[in-house]
Design a protein around this nucleic acid. Structure first.
Lengths: 246, 246
DNA sequence: TTAATTGCACTGGTCTGACCTGTTTTTGTA
DNA sequence: TACAAAAACAGGTCAGACCAGTGCAATTAA
C-alpha cells in the first residue's frame, strides 16, 4: 500500500504523512473526522508505531491534524487557508512579536526604496507610479489591498536595485496572506483611510520632485503608521479562524 | 532545562519543538546552521530519542528545518528564492553591478542592526560583542574574515530582531564564498586595515554607550567603506576564487 | 431505582535498546 | 604521499514495554 509512495520519498514516515495528507486533500478524510488510531495505522500499513507517530507529527506541524491525548487525531477544520510555501509565515502566527520585528525591517527597506526611487526614477517609472497612485485613489475597499501592494512594488522597482526589490517581494509574500486581509479591514475606517491617502500622496510627490529625503521620511512614516494599526488590530483579539480544534 | 516549558505544553516532544523553535527565533540557531544531532539533544535534554525525533518532525512540518539522512538537521532559510544555485545568485556573477546593489541594501540593514543593538543589547550581548571585538583585534590575516563575520553577527543578534537577523544571515551566506576571500585580500593592505580597525572600534563603542545614532552612522560608514573597496578590488579584475560551490 | 464507583478497554505519550543505511573522518597501509 | 579500509557518527526504523488521559459499562452503594 505504501510501497508506491516509498519509491519517491525514501523515508517511511514521510510516505505515511504524504499518504494521510492525500486522504485529507482528496476528501477521504473530512474536517474534524477522526483518523484511525496509531496502532490501527501501523498494523494496516505494516510499519512501526514510531514511524506512524512521526508522520502524524509532521501533519501536526502543518496543522493539518490535531491530536488529543486519550482521544485520537482529528483532521483540522480549516485546511483551505492558503498557506504560503514559506517557512517563516507560521512564526508570525505563533509569535505575535514577530509581526513587530517584521515591520521594523520592512519600514527600513521601504524607506530606502522610496529614497532611491526619488533619486533614480526614470520617466517610465514615474508614469508607472503615477498610474498606481491614481488606481489607489479610486480603489474600492475590495481592491484597496491590491492597489496598495502594486503602488509599493512600483516604487521598489523605481529604486533600480534588484536586490532590494527581491527582498521586499519576499517579505511581501510572507505576510501577504494575513496582512492583505487586515489592510482590507483597515481601509474602511474613515479617519485611517484619509490619513493613508495623504501619506501616499506625500510619497508620490516626494518621488516626483526627486526629493530623496522627503520620500524616505514619508515612506517610513507610512509603513510605520500602517504597521502600528495592524498591530493594534492584531492585539485587540482578531484571532480569526486559526486553531480550529481545541 | 525543559521543565519550565513542560508546564504549559504537557507534552515533551511539543516542549522540545518549542524550545528549538525559540532558539531559531532568537537567532541562537541561524539559517543553514546545523542543529545538534538527535543523540546529542536527547542526552542534553534528558529525554528519549523518540521524543526528540517527533519534535524535529513537527519542525519539519513547519518547514523550519530540513533533515538529511546521515548528515543532520539544518535550519531553513528565511528567503527561499535566495538560495545558492538560484538564478538570482547567478545574476551576481554575471552582472558586476549586482554587488553594488547588494551592498546598498546590506549597508542599510547593518546600520539598522547596529542601531537596534545599541538600544537593546543586554549585558550578555555586550559581553559577546566585546569578545568578538577582541578576537577581531588579535585576528591574523587568515582568521580575519571569520572574525569580522562573527563580529557583525553578534551585533545582529543583539538587535533582538529575528527577522533582521535571518535576513542578514541569508545575505551573508549568499556572498560568503566570494566576499570572504575578498576581505581576506583586503586586510593585508595596511592603510585599510588600520581604518577598518578604527571603524570596528567606533561601532563597538557606540553600542557600549547605547548611542543608537552613532552606532547607525559608524556601521553604515563601515559597510560602505568595505563595500567600496571590495567593489574597487572587483573592478580591477581580481576574479579570485569564486565558484567554490562547496 | 438511581447515583456513584470501579474496572477495563481504548487513545496517545514516552522510554529503551537494538539494528539498518548513509556520511564523514580517521587511520593504517601501500 | 595517496588511497582505501574502517571506525565514528548521522538519521531511519523497529519491537516491546510502560505511563497517562478518556470513555463506557458493569458493579456497587445509597
Amino acid at each position: 500500500m505504501l510501497s508506491s509512495l516509498l519509491d519517491t520519498s525514501r523515508c517511511i514516515s514521510k510516505a505515511i504523512a504524504d499518504y494521510i495528507e492525500k486522504l485529507i486533500l482528496d476528501g477521504d478524510l473530512l474536517p474534524s473526522q477522526k483518523i484511525p488510531s496509531e496502532r490501527q495505522l501501523c498494523s494496516k500499513l505494516k510499519v512501526s508505531r514510531a514511524a506512524v507517530r512521526e508522520a502524524l507529527r509532521v501533519l501536526q506541524g502543518k496543522e493539518l491534524i490535531a491530536t488529543l491525548h486519550g482521544k485520537g487525531s482529528f483532521v483540522a477544520e480549516i485546511i483551505q487557508p492558503l498557506r504560503a510555501n514559506s517557512p517563516f509565515i507560521q512564526l508570525y502566527y505563533d509569535h505575535n512579536r514577530t509581526l513587530y520585528d517584521f515591520n521594523e525591517v520592512r519600514t527600513q527597506l521601504e524607506g530606502q526604496a522610496a529614497s532611491l526611487a526619488a533619486q533614480r526614477a526614470t520617466t517610465k517609472d514615474l508614469y508607472q507610479i503615477d498610474k498606481a497612485f491614481k488606481a489607489l485613489e479610486n480603489a474600492t475597499p475590495k481592491t484597496f489591498a491590491d492597489c496598495d501592494q502594486t503602488f509599493h512594488k512600483t516604487i521598489a522597482q523605481a529604486s533600480h536595485n534588484p536586490v532590494l526589490l527581491h527582498l521586499l517581494a519576499s517579505l511581501e509574500e510572507l505576510l501577504s496572506h494575513s496582512v492583505q486581509a487586515s489592510i482590507t479591514n483597515l481601509y474602511p475606517i474613515d479617519t485611517l483611510k484619509i490619513k493613508m491617502d495623504r501619506q501616499h500622496l506625500l510619497i508620490h510627490q516626494a518621488i516626483r520632485n526627486k526629493s530623496a529625503k522627503r520620500a524616505l521620511k514619508a515612506a517610513t512614516e507610512h509603513v510605520q503608521f500602517v504597521s502600528d494599526h495592524l498591530q493594534a488590530l492584531e492585539n485587540q483579539g482578531e484571532k480569526i479562524i486559526r486553531h480550529a480544534l481545541k
